[in-house]
Amino acid sequence: MIQQTSDKKWFDQLVMELRMRQVHGSAIGDTIASAKELLRDTGQPAEKMFGPARDYAKALELPSAPKHDWICQALWPSTLGLLAFLLFNQAVVPWTRSELLLVSPAQLAFLATPVVLIAFLPLYLDAIIRRIWLCVGLSGIGALSGVLSAVAAPQNRAEAWLAVDPLPWLIGSALVMVALSIRNTTQSALTTGHDDITDPSSATAKSTGTGIKVFVQITNWLFPLLALAMLGLALVLR
């Protein structure tokens, strides 16, 4: 029982390490199946037979997708989506109150913090996946900067660095969010299942279930949905 638990943990770590190395799902399935085959034959624990999962994943030197692929396909659209969402949030309240959008330098700096954190994610992604406290810390910084941006918002036009009509920003940011969501939906529909982990020893794939598909679609439309909620809240509270 203990060995099964430790082996499961080892295999989970191996899958994570191979995913982080951008190894294709079919190659991961092959690696997992061949390792399980040897463990069945020898009856030894995975850690003893293959060493630490991280070292084994590195030693295999499996072909991987170029590291920049996910940055272009996922990271930049997400960063742009977040930027559009933050702009929308800044513009929505002044628009519902028929006021100008007032901006201060400190407010802009606080708003830029989560965008910068996400834009530089490739530099420290490995570290935050392996250290949960770092992930919690960075999420906390992002949330705190959001709160501080509200505190630093100018109260009147004299305090403001910029005073602009919120409507173009509202429409522009909404269009960007919707365009990115349509792009993500199309892309996920085209690529669903192509990188699933397939078990070659039984020729079955861990197919993408309905729950996962729904979750992916919600994620694709997360910013427009949240923006709609913010708009509704602003209209109710005005």
Binding site: T31, A59, E61, P63
Partner: peptide, 20 residues
Amino acid sequence: KGGTLYPLLTRYETAGLVTT
């Protein structure tokens, strides 16, 4: 150990010395 054998065979497969 499997941790020694399989990486070796994977490299040989990539090099075209073995097929799987």
